[in-house]
Write a protein that binds this DNA or RNA. Structure first.
Lengths: 168, 168
DNA sequence: TTGAAACAGGACTATTTTTGTCCGGTTGCG
DNA sequence: CGCAACCGGACAAAAATAGTCCTGTTTCAA
């Protein structure tokens, strides 16, 4: 589950589309400038997103990219997987190679659990949600807000204080 | 929070110590052979573990490594952080550089949440637990068991079904 | 006290992954 | 036709990963 810049750029790129009226076509270099991303790299990334059916591209003059689905329905996990392919937290969990440690590896289970948690979080956040709390870079670069907002897969808002024992 | 081979090897190395009587000193190349790890690489890794006070090294003939603390008290998170340093899931969360995206980045919060979940999982698994379900490689390389075992940070076993709304 | 055994630690190297760039091709519009 | 925009593959630079190696230093024990 490597989160590389490509994934981040993909998310930011989609946010740029999401804050426009649904269906609007935006050119690559507009998005790139807005989010401060190298345009040719963003091109590659949007190709992946197009293959993943998250955006649609149109060519020729007046062309560009538009969202295919409404931003409420696109999860961060989808975006990441569209860009990185089927990802795994460690080689142990890689679908192709599998765990290559000697004997019965005790770690795979642990890693799998951790990976599931990450996927839970990423699949519970949508592009629309993120778009809501994003300030694109072109404008106010100093006005960063810093509060942490919850992206917990539906559960009570209270972080449960670590000291509850047997909530049955 | 990159989980590299170094972390995996560190865990496996500690498991090798953990399945011996507490306090026993084991040489590097014994561990390396047992877990099928390049010995010189493992040397480097154990240096980190020693600096992190997880193992103690002794030199000279009859030297080697031993656990400093009982394996029940060593969490996977400690091991990983001893080897990788203070880790972060993405550059956004890196303590030095911090988030470098334009404007107010919506992604940091999401990544932070995911990272917290991973840390929860890794801090809830101990070397002792893992040791229990590990078959070292020297012996039966084909007898891999495959069931997934839970490493959930204490909570009700039921995953709460995603459909509860306002549990105040 | 001398020598060998074992780790310490830094320098070095090889491989892989990430992060891009570049350029010719294709498509679509006017 | 001719330009505007994306497509897609090849390429390249930089960084991270995965080690190796060699020269210590410490310790034990003959």
């Amino acid at each position: 589950m490597q989160i590389t810049r490509a994934s981040e750029y993909a998310m930011l790129g989609l946010l740029a589309l999401a804050r426009r009226p649904m269906g609007e076509v935006v050119m690559l270099d507009v998005v790139a400038r807005e989010e401060d991303i190298p345009v040719s790299f963003l091109g590659k990334i949007f190709q992946s997103l197009a293959r993943g059916k998250l955006v649609k591209s149109s060519r020729g003059s007046g062309g560009g990219f538009m969202l295919v689905r409404s931003p409420e329905t696109i999860t961060a996990l989808e975006v990441i997987e569209a860009v990185e392919g089927p990802v795994s937290l460690t080689r142990c969990l890689d679908e192709d190679t599998g765990c290559e440690h000697a004997g019965g590896c005790a770690l795979c289970g642990l890693f799998a659990e951790a990976q599931d948690r990450v996927k839970e979080v990423f699949s519970s956040a949508t592009v629309a949600q993120l778009s809501g709390r994003h300030i694109p870079g072109g404008m106010v670069r100093q006005a960063r807000q810093r509060e942490r907002i919850v992206f917990r897969p539906q559960r009570a808002a209270k972080p449960a204080a670590l000291t509850e024992k047997n909530a049955a």
